[in-house]
Design a protein around this nucleic acid. Structure first.
Length: 460
RNA sequence: GUGGUUUUAGCUCAGUCGGUUAGAGCGCCUGAUUGUGGUUCAGGAGGUCGUGGGUUCGAGCCCCAUAUUCCACCCCA
């Protein structure tokens, strides 16, 4: 057998025991909050039919879907002429029928449609699973990463949006983040803006351009707008909108003036106002300072129709750590009309990177084995087995050193694994029934019976 | 998809102008100490220099291709 050098697939990672403890801390914290708000967990398969996924994420997104090659002689269905032409886009449907899921929202929509008769609406579900994107990796961007999604379908009330703001607040605060911003915008406001400059058909180009304000500045945005088919006259109207200053409430007032001729735009403003009203009511009447209207926020996915969210941390340079919004007709694509949905997502991998950089993981999240029983010889091993069971029955994480190695090595092992206690069983101990319990932190030792050790470790 | 960057011991990294046997720190193993770790001391093992070609008397170093890392763009969590 040839010796293949082991390596990881680009953009993927192994997770060590310590990393898993930390990742689970993030997942558990988020899941706990989801449950508190009435969401129930589901899972869907890693693979979906390719047709289920294509066309849902725009052209850019479709390119990033990982396709799975058909099993068997996958070229047999490709005609010789197609093969000769070697046009990937036309051969693809013949050789690939399945794909890895690209996000959790579309599979969820598929789930809702398939299970509509068993579901009682409104349906509130959360889902924590990996997704795959054939993106080029960089900071905070992986090809396999976890999303933590919560969505509700079959409920139009804006209270849902407000509750999602609450979920973001609570989960991120519980994770120890102090300074983050929940940005809110509304697709209808963006539509209204496009409407008043008479370029409704260019709304996507408009949002993509103004979304970059932070990054490339006003001149950059204007350049991009011109490139994308906007005139100087359009930009004169757009400019004051893009540069809106002031508090969220002041921005809303100004927008009402600007968008007074756009019914859609005014409806968007009203929606944002209502959401903020609910948020304040849920927050004991106070407006949350870190929740703000950001008119330049335009999330890429095509299916959002109402409110959109994005969460950024201000403590670390990192892309958004969460996002979401309302999509009025997601299940319509699968033939179930008239169901409105709202959802949010936490980017667990990015949150991990942020917590690591800010050193926010609790020290206690590194708990493992509580006590190691040393192993001197076969006789001591036999003696140790009932004690091992007794410790475990008492809920104490215990392990027996698997071979009779030098004590130095066994203690070194305990040290490496940060096991706080070691029980030494030698001939003296077996004879007297008083075992030596060594505390690895201070090095102290005491002689105790097996029962005394169990009760001591239970409380400490 | 576009542009740049990285790759040398288990890990982090040196390696001069292309020139003999490729180095350091940490880690690992052994011993000092046959039942006492995290400290110390002594010794030891460990490398196809990412991979495949090429130039050269000679390549870790130069050229080409490719993979990979990280970064930016596009897009996104």
């Amino acid at each position: 057998m040839s010796n293949i050098k082991p390596s990881l697939v680009k953009g993927t990672r192994d997770f060590s025991p310590l990393e898993m403890v930390r990742r689970n801390y993030i997942f558990d914290t988020i899941k706990t909050v989801f449950r508190k708000y009435g969401y129930a967990e589901i899972q869907t398969p890693s693979m979906e039919n390719l047709a289920t996924l294509t066309g849902k994420y725009g052209d850019e997104g479709d390119k990033l879907i990982f396709k799975i090659l058909n099993s068997g002689d996958y070229l047999s269905k490709v005609g010789p002429q197609l093969l000769a032409e070697a046009r990937s886009s036309e051969i693809l449907p013949a050789i690939s029928e399945k794909a890895l899921r690209y996000d959790l929202t579309v599979p969820f929509a598929r789930y809702v449609v398939m299970h509509q008769n068993e579901i009682s609406f409104p349906f509130k579900r959360f889902q924590v699973q990996p997704v795959w994107r054939a993106d080029r990796p960089q900071k905070g961007r992986y090809r396999e990463f976890y999303q933590c999604d919560a969505d509700v379908v079959g409920s139009d009330t804006l209270l849902n949006e407000a509750e999602f703001v609450g979920i973001y607040q609570e989960a991120l605060t519980n994770l120890g983040l102090k300074d983050f911003t929940i940005k809110i915008n509304n697709r209808k406001i963006l539509s209204g803006i496009a409407e008043i400059i008479g370029k409704s058909e260019l709304i996507v180009d408009m949002t993509v351009a103004i979304d970059k304000l932070d990054k490339i500045g006003l001149d950059g945005v204007i350049g991009e707008l011109l490139e994308r088919g906007f005139t100087d006259a359009d930009i004169d109207i757009l400019k004051p909108v893009i540069l809106l200053k002031g508090t969220t409430l002041e921005k809303l007032e100004s927008l009402k003036q600007i968008l007074k001729t756009s019914e859609t735009g005014l409806r968007g403003i009203a929606e944002v106002e209502k959401v903020l009203e609910y948020v304040a009511a849920l927050n004991g009447g106070r407006q949350a300072g870190n929740t703000e209207l950001d008119i330049t926020l335009a999330r890429g996915l095509n299916y959002y129709t109402g409110c959109i969210f994005e969460v950024k941390t201000n403590e670390v340079a990192m892309g958004s750590i969460g996002g979401g919004g309302r999509y009025d007709d997601l299940t319509g694509m699968f033939g179930l009309k008239g169901l409105s949905g709202v959802g949010i997502s936490f980017g667990a991998d990015r949150i991990y990177d942020v917590l690591l950089e800010l050193d926010l993981f609790p020290a206690s999240s590194a708990v493992g084995t509580k006590v190691l029983i040393s192993n001197f010889d076969e006789k001591a091993e036999q003696y140790a087995l009932p004690l091992l069971s007794g410790l475990r029955d008492g809920g104490i994480a215990a392990e027996l050193y698997p071979v009779a190695a030098k004590l130095k090595k066994q203690l070194g092992y305990a040290d490496d694994k940060r096991i706080p206690y070691v029980i030494l069983i030698g001939s003296d101990e077996m004879e007297s029934g008083k075992l030596t319990l060594k505390n690895m932190q201070d090095g102290g030792q005491e002689r105790l019976s097996a029962a005394e050790i169990i009760s001591k470790l239970k409380i400490s």
